[in-house]
Design a protein around this nucleic acid. Sequence first.
DNA 1: ATTATATATGAACACATGTTCACATGAGCC
DNA 2: GGCTCATGTGAACATGTGTTCATATATAAT
Lengths: 122, 122
Amino acid sequence: MRENQTPVESCSCDVIHQNVVDRVKPLMPKEEALYDLAELFKVFGDTTRIRILWALDASEMCVCDIAFLLNMTQSAISHQLRVLKQAQLVRGRKDGKIVFYSLEDEHVRQIFDQGLVHIHEM
Amino acid sequence: MRENQTPVESCSCDVIHQNVVDRVKPLMPKEEALYDLAELFKVFGDTTRIRILWALDASEMCVCDIAFLLNMTQSAISHQLRVLKQAQLVRGRKDGKIVFYSLEDEHVRQIFDQGLVHIHEM
DNA sequence: ATTATATATGAACACATGTTCACATGAGCC
DNA sequence: GGCTCATGTGAACATGTGTTCATATATAAT
């Protein structure tokens, strides 16, 4: 019985460098970590969410402020804030009718910075 | 004449904190930078591409090796490699019939690490 | 209570995206 | 040349995603 490998390989060509594959295979992280990583970056992969995060990095803001700042509907912002909240990137603080959103931690800024380094904007 | 602001605001609610908006607005980067940033993270936002990048971080590999390692078709890998190449994350080195791919630079690893820090995998 | 306002949310829609399939390209080999 | 193999690519398809619209919820004000 194999452990966690599907028996049928769907690659349509011969393996050229079996030694390379054998060396890299054990270095691959478990599927779950890679999935979580992709899910996180997926959240960053939208202009609206990037703009929200950038704005919140400057200041705590309520939904209405963000919508006005970004010139978008309150509904659209609210939907995206939910995505950001689920990814634990932002946090909501309720004060009466108003909900003030802010960044959950400082990782956001650091991830931004690494991205900016790559696109030569830093 | 306004500069770069659309005249009609699509926010459906009143602005609560005009001072906050006025303070944050000039801190927002230009639209292009935010777009590029989102595009970059979008590339990272897919499990297949993450796996390819991780594999290439371990070793230079040809298309066929990657396909075999990840148990996917050569075509799927080839399509994704094109996306990664366009984002300047990987580079191809042709040697006869075989094309060896490797990471373009070390930014990939750093972006990965920041992501892993956030999801508490590091 | 009634009304107004800030936010949340479900459904619908248009659009983007990843994989597959079939086939093209291009390089070595006979 | 003709053949084989590694890779690239366009079209089709199913699935995922972001916004809008209508409406629900919750809190404050009257």
